[in-house]
Design a protein around this nucleic acid. Structure first.
Length: 684
DNA sequence: TGCGATGTAAACAGCC
DNA sequence: TGGCTGTTTACATCGC
């Protein structure tokens, strides 16, 4: 909904956001009209100017609301907004007030925003009216009538637009066709007639409706009935006739206030399910009650000011604030009306929040995430897995793309998760975007022990091709995979480059960096063997050397081994892979009496997969003839050009130890499956 | 805390 | 001469 991020906002000068004059000057900037309602004392303010003023105020309120939305729901209080420089979304700030028609405003603002806009307009108007009362003779009563007219016109127009917007949403199925009782009540509560009354009582200025009608020919009652026709009037007729809990005696008018307030309270309780009234932190006492207000803090009091909407009265201490609260915000029409408006704003925000939450849920569901799964935030990171190329989460997903539906993320998660599931902790870590731009962030384990790079790439091939997402594999794994994927199991450096760029959108940028890393890895790791042939120099993979890379420390501790196994998350393996495993000689590992020396193939298997399971897959495939991949021996080219000849000590890993581990771990069947992929060469 | 693995950056040399 | 290729070193970060 937000059109601009906070970083894209511009910061207006304080003089530019503080009220009418600056707005007028803003609006006049293009037209060159000077003076006007610039706050100068020369000249009267015409109704046209006032109407113009209202439009500017609406725009300003919209800007402020958008700003508040951009900065989260805990928006600052109105006075804070006034005191701090206002950050205005660029797109909004660039718009001259005259450029925004009500229809455009409707398009820009969502119904809750429109509602909040209404409230802010009211607050602004309240301040203005107070200003007119304190600055005697500044505005004549006739001008007040004009302003009132403009205000009413705009409120009516805004409300009509909002209702149209709601109806449009209803037609599009975006909001329920049947508004909730709360919404009906709110709509009813904000009908123009109520707003008229609200204006009358809030401003304390007698309504000059007749004069308004004379001047503008506006029949507010007609507008009222039209504008509210979509929502049946019911609320006012259903205000419960209860007395206040404190047994206060009321004049008839006072009684009406009490009933209204009672209705508000009951509405809030019924609708939100909460047991606290909106204006009181704990109790539900009406404003006249003091019992709660000496608790030292008050939600309506902060920074020495009254936080009542539209009120910025300075109160030195809590006592003074309590006095102010009881005097200025006692139970009357104005307070109840403001309460209603505030309630409406909260309600709309809650609705908006619910919608956004639902959208988030749908997005995460679509991305195979589990947003609702409770999980402590300090769980081991499972997305940016070990040895991955992820510098950091934010860097891994620079365009705000979702986490890839990688199965590589899941295996090391202690909680068993299904395939292609990204836990909420992943999201959490994703939200931990670091500010600095360099520095690798790696998570061990996934790449070395759990990441089936072949199946991962097979499953999410299109994802990595199109999304600018860094693959969760090491350069070494990717290089190896690229080489093994080639028909001849050998690639030139340029072909490796091409494979990277072809397979991963991420590697289509920052070429110097990752190419350097590729070269670095090729040179660094003994498993990559440079072979001179007719094509020039090609790179091959010495699988034995590759698998000799440091495996996990799993010596001795069955608990550790079991944890590792349980963390592998076998669900990340696809069905074909599991089937291949089941059919492969690795099934020997599942045989309890594994005491006989494994075959050569089995031995090879035992060295497989500490870096990624793809090697296992490929070797399994080689045995299971699922794909024309080669055994490690076949991978290992006999031509070792590197200066340091690989000391391929014939693998003398004691298989009995593996058997011992197997025996010592009465694993569930699915976890026994996992064990097949475990590196076993250092189980001693 | 130390160590190994990994990523990044950079310098350098050789070759085309 | 510039770019590519390959090697090496240094440093930072992470997980164990």
């Amino acid at each position: 909904m937000m059109v601009e991020s906070a970083s894209e906002t511009i910061r207006t000068t304080p003089s530019n956001q503080n009220g009418v004059s600056s707005l007028s000057s803003q609006s006049d900037g293009g037209g060159g009209r000077e003076g006007g309602s610039n706050g100068d004392t020369n000249g009267e303010i015409s109704p046209v100017d006032l109407l113009h003023l209202q439009q500017q105020q609406a725009l300003q309120a919209a800007r402020q609301f958008l700003l508040q939305q951009a900065s989260g729901l805990n928006s600052p209080s109105s006075n804070e907004v006034k005191q701090s420089p206002v950050q205005v979304p660029v797109s909004m700030a660039m718009m001259s007030p005259q450029m925004i028609t009500p229809q455009q405003m409707q398009q820009i603002l969502s119904p809750p925003q429109l509602q909040a806009l209404l409230q802010q307009q009211q607050a602004l108007m309240l301040q203005q009216v107070r200003l007119t009362h304190t600055h005697s003779g500044w505005i004549l009563s006739k001008q007040i009538g004009s302003k009132q007219l403009a205000f009413q016109q705009q409120l009516i127009q805004m409300q009509q637009l909002q209702q149209q917007h709601i109806l449009n949403l209803q037609r599009q199925g975006l909001v329920p066709l049947q508004p909730t009782a709360a919404m009906q009540s709110l709509q009813q509560a904000m009908c123009p007639s109520d707003l008229q009354q609200l204006w009358k009582e809030v401003s304390g200025v007698p309504s000059s409706e007749e004069a308004l009608k004379q001047a503008e020919g506006l029949d507010l009652s007609t507008n009222s009935s039209n504008s509210t026709s979509a929502f049946p009037k019911a609320a006012s007729a259903h205000i419960p006739l209860h007395s206040l809990p404190n047994g206060q005696s009321h004049t008839p008018k006072r009684d009406r206030y009490a009933r209204l307030f009672e209705w508000i309270s009951s509405f809030t309780k019924a609708d939100s399910g909460d047991d606290h009234a909106p204006l009181y932190s704990k109790g539900s006492q009406p404003p006249s009650s003091h019992h709660e207000e000496h608790a030292g803090s008050h939600p309506l009091y902060g920074h020495g000011e009254c936080k009542w909407p539209g009120c910025e009265a300075l109160c030195e201490d809590m006592g003074q604030f309590i006095k102010h609260l009881n005097n200025e915000h006692a139970l009357d029409d104005r307070s109840t009306a403001q309460c209603r408006v505030q309630m409406q704003v909260v309600q709309q925000l809650e609705i908006q929040l619910a919608k956004e939450s639902e959208r988030l849920q749908a997005m995460m569901t679509h991305l195979h995430m589990r947003p609702s799964e409770p999980k402590p935030f300090n769980q081991p990171l499972n997305l940016a897995s070990s040895g991955s190329l992820l510098k950091r989460d934010s860097d891994a997903y620079p365009e705000g793309l979702p986490h890839p539906p990688t199965s590589a993320a899941t295996p090391i998660t202690p909680l068993r998760q299904g395939p292609s599931v990204i836990s909420s902790s992943s999201l959490h870590t994703h939200s931990h975007s670091h500010t600095h731009a360099v520095g690798p962030i790696r998570r061990r384990n996934s790449d070395k022990y759990c990441t089936p790079i072949a199946s991962e790439l097979a499953q999410n091939c299109e994802f990595y091709k199109n999304a600018d997402v860094r693959p969760p594999f090491t350069y070494a794994s990717l290089i190896r995979h690229a080489i093994l994927e080639s028909p001849d199991r050998q690639l030139t450096l340029n072909e490796i480059y091409n494979w990277f760029t072809r397979k991963f959108a991420y590697f289509r940028r920052n070429t110097a960096t990752w190419k350097n890393a590729v070269r670095h890895n090729l040179s660094l790791h003994k498993c990559f063997v440079r072979v001179e042939n007719v094509k020039g120099a090609v790179w091959t993979v010495d699988e034995v050397e590759y698998q000799k890379r440091r495996p996990p420390k799993m010596t001795g501790s069955p608990t550790l081994v079991k944890n590792m196994i349980s963390g592998l998350g076998f669900g990340s393996l696809n069905a074909s892979y599991q089937a291949a495993l089941a059919e492969s000689s690795l099934s020997l590992l599942n045989s309890p009496p594994l005491v006989t020396p494994p075959s050569a193939a089995s031995l090879n298997m035992l060295h497989v997969g500490h870096d990624d399971v793809s090697s296992t897959v490929e070797q399994v495939n080689s045995n299971g003839s699922c794909s024309p991949t080669l055994s490690p021996q076949q991978y290992s080219h006999p031509v070792h050009v590197k200066e340091e000849p690989t000391e391929v000590e014939e693998d003398s890993r004691p298989v009995s130890l593996l058997a011992g581990v197997t025996h010592s771990l009465p694993l569930p069947s699915d976890e026994r499956d996992l064990e097949e992929d475990l590196p076993t060469e250092e189980l001693e």
